[in-house]
Nucleic acid binder design. Structure first.
Lengths: 126, 126
DNA sequence: TATACCGGTATACTTTAGTATAGTAGTTAC
DNA sequence: GTAACTACTATACTAAAGTATACCGGTATA
């Protein structure tokens, strides 16, 4: 029987890999600013200052730090163009773009969940 | 045009809801222990001490705190049975169980990502 | 020469998250 | 009566995450 993470009964057998994969994913979204950065880059490549302007209230220190994390984890690529002055472009890698699938499911669940909780509070059976 | 979170072009229109839904989901998994707890409860209802034993190194303080958070967010339900002594059972709500879909996509992405990064490091084109 | 843009870094601080350790009230078994 | 189980809570602490503020070297513009 192959290790298929989508089958609950098999999780026990493959729990090491399952947990490892979830942790990998969690690392990508850990911290206050990673999702805003990824979200911003979903619209296309951006320069440092563009990101700084796009993402409200982020400080250059945090932007720099989070971009480094994302680059290390191969979510974002950094390209230096030797224009004068130098320009630096940040872009989602293929993995980074595929991450949108995770976001989509999170959104789906979030919307459903909110619907459920609301109807529960209002005592309504949908 | 309806607000469909899965279509990137529409995100701008509906970005408020999109962001809100992602935040809802993030709240569920924020913190070191929420996923271990949810993971443990995927196998069925558990009592406090069972969870404490299942989840390595968690302290009762954190377990209690995280369970309260999860209960407040309608991910987990708490039932007191008036046996002697009282037993308390924690169980995933419907929303909590549906959350497995999010975990599955996270696992899928995590595995794919790891494959990509590894082949990149080894200079292999799959 | 002064001002502003670029892509950041340095230092010091606050705030939040998590840990360690002990203790609670009630019940049961020896 | 004493030890052990249940489901927790309280207090005090440490560690991690994030913020505020200022600054860097380089270039271009007025």
């Amino acid at each position: 029987m192959a290790c298929d993470a989508s089958v609950l009964a098999e999780v026990k057998m493959c729990s090491g890999n399952y947990v490892m994969a979830v942790n990998d994913t969690m690392n990508v979204i850990s911290g206050k600013w990673k999702l805003p950065i990824i979200g911003s880059l979903l619209y296309g490549k951006k320069r440092f200052k563009e990101l700084e302007r796009d993402i409200e209230k982020i400080t250059p220190r945090m932007l720099s730090k989070e971009l480094k994390d994302l680059e290390m984890n191969s979510i974002v690529s950094r390209t230096v163009h030797n224009t004068i002055p130098v320009t630096v472009e940040y872009e989602l890698t293929e993995s980074g773009q595929r991450f949108k699938a995770v976001l989509d499911v999170m959104v789906e669940w979030g919307i459903e969940h909110r619907r459920n909780v609301k109807s529960e509070i209002m005592g309504v059976k949908l």
